[in-house]
Design a protein around this nucleic acid. Structure first.
Length: 772
DNA sequence: GAAGAGCTATTTTTT
DNA sequence: ATAGCTCTTC
């Protein structure tokens, strides 16, 4: 045991040894958080605590798996496998499989993914004859999700008049009807959505004191990783489970809270000490991951946020290279630049490709990097985005599997009742919908009794027979479940539904790829079955397989042996680290996102996101931004992200221009009485105004200049104060009158009524206007 | 009821 | 740019 503890620094060791009572560990980025969690669990077990009595909630399944592995090394694998470890969703799905019957759910309940939920909601909006342009399915779904995470059910909705008012204000007075119907339909389908897994767990623990007592007794020691990203629902589960023994240890970093948009409540971590007045607090502040330049640059960013717990992250690591900021002309150039840099470092420093990671704000940014890496034959792996299990062909096949396991599953039912086509069309499905709502039964329920019920909604004999055939087909699949393993059943379904034949016949490249995806799915099932057979207590059933894939986290994909460049959104990168990190697309309205510009809180979250991104880097970190970029199929002008400016100069390297444009001695801009050359903030000088990688001289990033600054007779830009009513000349549009001005500083836009070209809204910094 | 043509939202992040 | 959705036509 002493051997175990000797591998830790002082604060880490204290956090591990404080096994009893509530403990909060504030762990700065790279400070050995996972290490503390791992050692703490191993330490508990060495002290004689049964693995069965320890619950550890992690942020990804992969993290849980790796941690279990490491703990196994200390205490033995047989012991470690009994730990309750996983994401909130997977642990409580497992418990709900056992206890869900108390709430009226079948043991084999389906887990709806966001796609299923949205389809169901769209269907309900249609059934209620609501305007889908006002009641946007995605928005409705978001609102339902937020409500569930705050434990507000349709029944309790009326207790909150302000919610009803908000609905009216949003022109969605019927929202509550959709929510009610959605809840009922999920229930009739024997289905839970992601939020239900938490909501229903809360319900279970509240309504059934004996169940609560059972799990309180079982989970004598509770650990929660990434506590800053728990939502209210998760918070309550943890709180009620821990209330018996109060051996609760939460680990997190408020500076890395990046999931407010899905209901994470940073208050949970900020208020821990008031929730548990006798809580012990430990801070891990020494960073072991990154160079000093990276650590200090990250610190210099996060201090722009107001709301945070005090902490000082430091390191004894070498200074390292400065953060490198690079400006590129377009997103294509950005792709090429990153690819070339990776290629060079790979060749010159013998770095494996797995040393590199490209981080972006939105999934849509991955394309140019893919193109460029592929052209250079550099292997890469994209995490997240459209997952394998969201592909149409996979969802279709899985819909059959889901029906075999739980035939009440409405979304699976709708998806494949007429795929492949069997003459059951829209009209029939509408009639079935009416019937199901009348009878308050599932689609399957009414179809199973179609001979008795079909006449009442005018389904003719021929259609009834088609439905009966379909029911029998699903029943035949169901019958296989008890006698055959998952792999056999899925292959059988793939063959007998005709899905394999249909995809196999499609010789287009997309068709071939779909066919291969189905094969890959079959392999996946096979692997799952074999893996489960090796674990004792493993469950190789199809129901277990479906749960497993429904709750996969995006980074859970297995590692392959070929070293590959990783690409993912910053959100997905949480908890990961790479020697070389490229943070790309650092432009206003992209990162920070346009949607976050509205409030300080949103902007602070974006800043924390940037902090997370920076602190993924161990040795080298590049930041790139571009002048133009394709978005929505259009070319959009960009300007550098404010986050670049916020970085402390001392840790940042801006490339020197090949030929420095002479910005220092330009005539002063007319800045409305203020001198343009008042003492500059260091930040104003730092970005390079040099050319792109190709050496083309470019404009200085406009956000670093005052409007009207720079330019001069020879250079582009604006060398006069612009006013409404002025006559101006534009290269392309000709002469016009300034009708209005909007925006501030670098963002000033002029609305100009051109004599011949009509009215245009132009960003001054690009418009190159001349006085007439 | 099925197939094909046009239309429209999509890009913030995810269990 | 593109995929999914709705509308039209057979």
């Amino acid at each position: 045991m002493s051997n175990l503890l000797s591998q830790l620094n002082d604060s880490q060791r204290l956090a591990v040894e404080a096994t009893e009572g509530p403990v909060m560990v504030i762990a700065g980025a790279g400070s050995g958080k996972t290490r503390v969690l791992t050692f703490r669990i191993a330490y508990l077990m060495q002290k004689g605590v049964d693995a069965f009595n320890i619950l550890a909630l992690t942020f990804t399944n992969k993290a849980a798996k790796e941690m279990k592995e490491r703990i196994g090394r200390f205490v033995g694998y047989n012991e470690a496998k009994n730990l309750w470890m996983g994401t909130f969703h997977s642990v409580f799905a497992r418990i709900l499989r056992v206890e869900g019957h108390l709430l009226g759910y079948p043991q084999n309940f389906t887990i709806y993914d966001a796609d299923d939920s949205k389809r169901l909601i769209s269907g309900i909006i249609k059934e209620l004859s609501l305007d889908k342009d006002i009641y946007k399915a995605k928005q409705v779904f978001g609102r339902i999700s937020a409500l569930k995470n705050n434990l507000i059910t349709p029944k309790g909705y009326h207790k909150y008049p302000e919610l009803l008012e908000a609905d009216s204000a949003a022109r969605m007075p019927m929202f509550i009807d959709i929510y009610t119907q959605y809840t009922e339909r999920c229930f009739r389908s024997g289905a839970m959505d992601f939020d239900d897994l938490l909501l229903k767990t809360n319900e279970l623990l509240t309504k059934f004191p004996e169940v609560l007592a059972k799990y309180q007794e079982r989970f004598k020691y509770i650990l929660v990783d990434e506590y800053q990203d728990t939502n209210h629902s998760q918070y309550l589960i943890v709180k009620s489970l821990a209330s018996r023994f109060e051996n609760i240890c939460v680990v997190g970093d408020d500076a890395q809270s990046i999931y407010a948009f899905r209901g994470a409540n940073i208050r949970n971590i900020l208020n821990f000490q008031s929730d548990y007045p006798n809580a012990q607090l430990y801070k891990l502040e020494q960073n072991y991951r990154s160079t000093n330049n990276i650590v200090q640059a990250a610190n210099s960013i996060i201090k722009h946020n107001k709301e945070q717990l005090e902490k000082n992250v430091w390191t004894e690591n070498p200074t390292g290279e400065k953060i490198k900021v690079r400006k590129l002309i377009s997103d294509t150039d950005e792709g090429n630049f990153v690819t070339q840099t990776i290629f060079d470092a790979h060749m010159n420093e013998q770095r494996p490709y797995s040393d590199f990671c490209i981080l972006y704000r939105t999934n849509a940014q991955s394309r140019p990097f893919e193109d460029s890496l592929r052209r250079k034959n550099i292997p890469y792996q994209i995490y997240g985005g459209l997952s394998f299990y969201q592909r149409k062909e996979i969802k279709d096949l899985l819909a059959y599997v889901r029906l075999a396991v739980n035939p009440d599953d409405e979304e699976a039912f709708r998806r494949v009742i007429n795929y492949p086509a069997r003459g059951i069309g829209q009209t029939t499905i509408e009639k079935l919908t009416i019937l199901a709502n009348q009878e308050k039964r599932s689609f399957w329920g009414v179809c199973d009794a179609i001979a008795f019920l079909g006449g009442s909604v005018g389904l003719n004999r021929a259609t009834q027979n088609k439905i009966a055939d379909w029911v029998n087909k699903i029943k035949s699949y169901r019958a296989l479940l008890t006698s055959h393993d998952a792999f056999f059943v899925v292959s059988h379904i793939a063959k007998t539904t005709g899905i394999i034949a249909e995809l196999g016949a499609d010789k287009t490249p997309e068709g071939v790829s779909r066919y291969e995806n189905v094969q890959e799915l079959l392999n996946g099932v096979q692997e799952f079955v074999e893996e489960q057979r090796q674990i004792d207590g493993g469950d190789p059933s199809l129901a277990a397989y479906l749960t497993d894939i429904a709750l996969l986290t995006a980074t859970d994909k297995k590692d392959e042996n070929i070293p590959k460049v990783s690409m993912m959104t910053i959100h997905l990168a949480k908890g990961l680290e790479f020697p070389y990190v490229f943070i790309v697309g650092l432009e206003e309205n992209l990162f920070p996102s346009m949607m976050a510009m509205g409030s300080r809180a949103d902007l602070e979250e974006e800043r924390r996101l940037f902090y997370v991104a920076l602190t993924r880097a161990e040795q080298v970190c590049y930041l790139t931004y571009t002048q133009i970029r394709y978005r929505w199929g259009k070319i959009i002008d960009g300007e550098p992200s404010r986050f670049i400016e916020e970085l402390d100069d001392a840790y940042v390297d801006f490339p020197m221009p090949e030929i420095a444009p002479d910005t220092t001695f330009l005539p002063p801009a007319n800045t409305g009485g203020k001198l343009a050359w008042e003492p500059r903030k260091p930040a104003e000088r730092k970005p390079s105004f040099s050319g792109s990688a190709a050496g083309t001289p470019l404009q200085p990033p406009a956000s670093f200049k005052k409007v009207g600054g720079g330019g001069g007779a020879s250079g582009p830009g604006l060398d006069f104060e612009i006013e409404v009513g002025q006559r101006v000349m534009h290269d392309r549009f000709g002469v016009g009158t300034v009708a209005a001005l909007e925006g501030a500083n670098a963002d000033v836009k002029a609305i100009i009524a051109f004599d011949n070209a009509g009215e245009k809204r132009l960003l001054l910094k690009y418009a190159k206007l001349k006085l007439v």
